[in-house]
Every structure is written in C-alpha cells, then in structure tokens.
Simulated scan of single mutants.
Amino acid sequence: MRLITLALAALLLLIQYPLWLGKGGWLRVADLEAQVEAAQRKNAELQSRNAKLDSEVRDLKDGTGAVEERARYELSMIKQNEIYVQILGKGQTQPQAATPSPTKP
C-alpha cells in the first residue's frame, strides 16, 4: 500500500512538472505576459513621441511661426528694428558683447 502511495505521489509530481516549469508552463506564461506589457508601454511612449515629432514637422512645413519661434529662442535671433532685452537672475553675470572682427582693406 505504501509503495502505491509513493508511486502515485511521484506520478503526480511528474504530471505537475510541465505545468509549472515546462515550455508552456504557468511561470513561462507569466514571464511572457510581463514582457508583452513592457513592450506595450514602450510602444505607447514611442507613439506619443512620434505624434509630437509629427506635429512639430507639420508646423515647420506649413507655417513660418514655428520657424520664427525656434530662431528666436534657440538661436537668439531678432527681427530688424526690434530691441532685445535680457533679464539676468541673481548670481548671473553680464555676457560679453561680441566685438566686430576687423575688415581687410
């Protein structure tokens, strides 16, 4: 009787092994589901980034407003007959004015 119980317990363990640790086991499925969720999060982030870049490209192609804004803020360009005022915060020093290069005769 004891031998039959041990044999049935061993058989039960052999049957459970593929369920938990096999190729299609629960642990593997849980791991794959976590990977799919991480990939979906990454895709959502990339889609929002792509939408932002697409919007920016459309603005640059269609109008001059976006180009002008970039020129003003990134390159510090100003229009003709415009006055540029820079307000310095505490601890900032006044930038050196650019000196014109001498022209060759």
Rank of each mutant, 00 (worst) to 15 (best):
I78P: 07
E56W: 10
K79W: 07
K79E: 02
Q96V: 01
A38K: 05
G89E: 00
A39F: 07
Q35G: 04
I87V: 04
E68H: 15
A30T: 12
A39R: 02
P95D: 01
L32F: 15
Y17G: 03
P100K: 14
A51F: 00
K79G: 09
Q94M: 10
G63W: 11
Y84W: 10
T103N: 12
Q80L: 01
L88C: 02
A38W: 02
L8E: 15
Y17T: 10
V29Y: 10
Q94A: 04
V67P: 02
R70E: 03
Q86R: 13
R49C: 09
A34W: 08
W26R: 08
L19W: 10
A51W: 01
A30Q: 12
L6F: 10
N50S: 03
A30V: 14
E56S: 14
Q35Y: 04
D54G: 09
K104H: 08
G24K: 11
K23G: 05
A39N: 04
T99V: 02
E33T: 13
I83Q: 14
K79T: 07
Q80I: 02
G65R: 11
A51L: 05
L21I: 06
T99F: 06
L60S: 11
L21P: 03
T5S: 11
Q47F: 12
A38G: 05
L32M: 15
Q96T: 01
T64S: 10
V85I: 08
V85H: 12
R70Y: 06
L13T: 08
Y17E: 08
A39S: 02
M1D: 13
R58G: 11
S48A: 12
T93S: 00
L11Q: 10
Q40C: 07
L53G: 06
K61H: 11
I15K: 11
R70P: 00
Q80G: 01
E33K: 08
A38F: 03
Q92S: 05
L27H: 14
E45M: 07
I78S: 08
Q96M: 04
L75W: 05
L3M: 15
R41F: 12
Q47R: 06
A66I: 00
G91H: 01
K90P: 06
